[in-house]
Simulated assay, not measured.
Amino acid sequence: MRVAFVGKGGSGKTTLSALFARQLARSGAPVLAVDGDINQHLAEALDPAADTAPFEAPPLAAHLSDLKDLLRGTNARIASREAMVKTTPPGRGSRLLRLLGDDELHTRHVQRVGGVPLMVTGEFDESDLGVACYHSKLGAVELYLSHLVDGPGEYLVMDMTAGADAFASGLFTRFDMTFLVAEPTRKGVSVYRQYRDNAREFGIPLAVVGNKVTGEDDLLFLKEEVGDDLLTHLVVSPWVRSAERGRPQGELEEPNRHALRLLRETVDAREKNWPAMHRHAVEFHLRNARAWADAATGQDLAAQVDPEFVPGPASLH
C-alpha cells in the first residue's frame, strides 16, 4: 500500500512520515520511505541521533534519463526517452518494478537510514533557480510510482511537498491512503480544505491526523474544522522535541504510539484498486498531453496509452 503524508510546512508531516515508516520497519514489514519534499529532511527524521548527514545515495531526479530508459523497456508506444514525460503511463512492454526489488534502480537509489530503506527525489538548489521548477524533480517519482507494483503487506511511505503543491501534477492520485497532518490552528487546517475538495473529486481517500495537540480545546477545534475526516491525533511530544535536537531520549509516548497503530490499521483496511489508480494516471497523462506535452515533444502523446493494459500483480508475469 502507498501512503502519503501531506500538510502545510511545519505541521509535522516529515516527523510523522518518519515515525510511521520506522514503526512499519520495526514490525518486520517491507517498507520504502520516499522523501518528496522540496526540503529534504526525512533522512534526518529517520535517524535523529546521527552526527552527520547519513544519506549518500543519488536522488532519483538526478538520473531521470536512465530512469526513463529503464521503465519504457520494450514498450513500442514510447519511441524514445525524449518522448516519455512524467505522466507517461506503463503499457505492454514497460518495465514494472517490485518494491525494493533486485534491480538497478533500487540498488542505486535506496539506502537504509535508521533501519528504514529510503529514496529521495532531490533538492531544489541554486542551479535550478530560474530554469526549473520542483515539479520537474517530482516527475521522476511520479514515473516510479506509475510503474511500481507493490504487493500485499508492502508499504511505501512518502513525505510530500508542503501545502497543495502536489496538485500541480497527478501525483496525489498515486496513493492508496493520504494522511493530512494538521496543527490545531486556522493555518493548520487551511491546506485540508484544498486537499479535501480535490480528493473528493477523484475519489482519493483522505484522513486528517491532528498534531501537536495540547488539550481538549485543541481537539475540539480540529473536530469543528474537519469533522469526520479527523482520524486521530498526536499530543505534543517531549520525545520528538529531544529527537529534533539530535538527542532522542526514552521512547515515544504511548498516546502517540497508539495513534501510529491506528494509522496502520486504517491503511491495512484499504483495498488496492489498480484499475482506478491506472485510470487516474491515464486521465492526467491526457490532460498534460493536451496542455503542454504534445507541443513540447512534437508528438501525439495520447498514443502512449495502451488500452489493453492495467498494472497489477498479473502484469508482472
Rank of each mutant, 00 (worst) to 15 (best):
L231V: 08
G10Y: 07
A289Y: 08
A140W: 00
F179N: 05
R112I: 06
L171Q: 02
A4H: 13
D37R: 06
A164Y: 02
F55R: 01
E126I: 15
G151W: 06
P238S: 11
E244F: 00
L32W: 05
G36M: 09
M177C: 10
G114N: 11
H258G: 03
G153I: 05
T214D: 06
T87Q: 09
Y155T: 08
V120G: 00
E142N: 05
L16D: 10
A199V: 11
G130C: 10
T121K: 03
E244G: 14
G163W: 01
T14S: 14
P313T: 14
R26F: 09
M277P: 11
G170H: 10
G130Q: 01
A29K: 10
T15A: 15
G10R: 00
T173I: 07
L143C: 02
A168K: 02
M177T: 01
K68C: 11
L118G: 12
N211P: 04
P238C: 03
R26D: 13
V149M: 04
V149I: 08
E244S: 02
V149L: 04
L129I: 12
T232W: 07
G215K: 00
L129F: 05
L99Y: 10
R279F: 00
A168N: 05
F175R: 06
A45T: 04
R98T: 03
E225A: 14
P248R: 03
E254W: 03
L231Q: 13
D66T: 04
R2L: 08
Q40R: 08
A18S: 11
E216K: 13
P48M: 07
A49I: 01
G122P: 12
L263T: 06
E265R: 14
G7M: 12
A140S: 00
H317F: 14
A57M: 00
H233Y: 11
R241G: 03
P117E: 06
F124K: 12
A295C: 12
R261G: 14
V240A: 02
F309D: 04
V236R: 05
L46P: 11
R22H: 11
P255C: 02
G36T: 08
E271K: 13
N75C: 02
E82W: 13
A132M: 06
H63M: 15
L99K: 07
L252A: 06
S11P: 04
L97T: 05
E254L: 15
F309V: 08
L99H: 09
A291G: 10
N39M: 11
A269E: 13
V116R: 12
E224Q: 13
D69T: 00
D35H: 11
H135K: 01
S237T: 00
G210K: 09
E308S: 14
S27E: 15
A4I: 08
G227K: 01
G163K: 01
G114Q: 04
T52E: 12
H258R: 15
D268Y: 01
R22S: 15
A296Q: 15
K223F: 05
L156C: 09
A303E: 14
R98V: 03
A18R: 10
E265Q: 13
M84T: 09
M158A: 04
S315M: 07
K137V: 12
E265D: 13
R279W: 03
M277I: 15
S11T: 05
V113R: 07
E308C: 05
M84Y: 05
V34Q: 06
R264H: 08
H106Q: 03
R247A: 09
D218Q: 13
D37C: 01
K187L: 11
E104K: 07
Q304E: 12
Y155A: 03
D150H: 11
S27C: 13
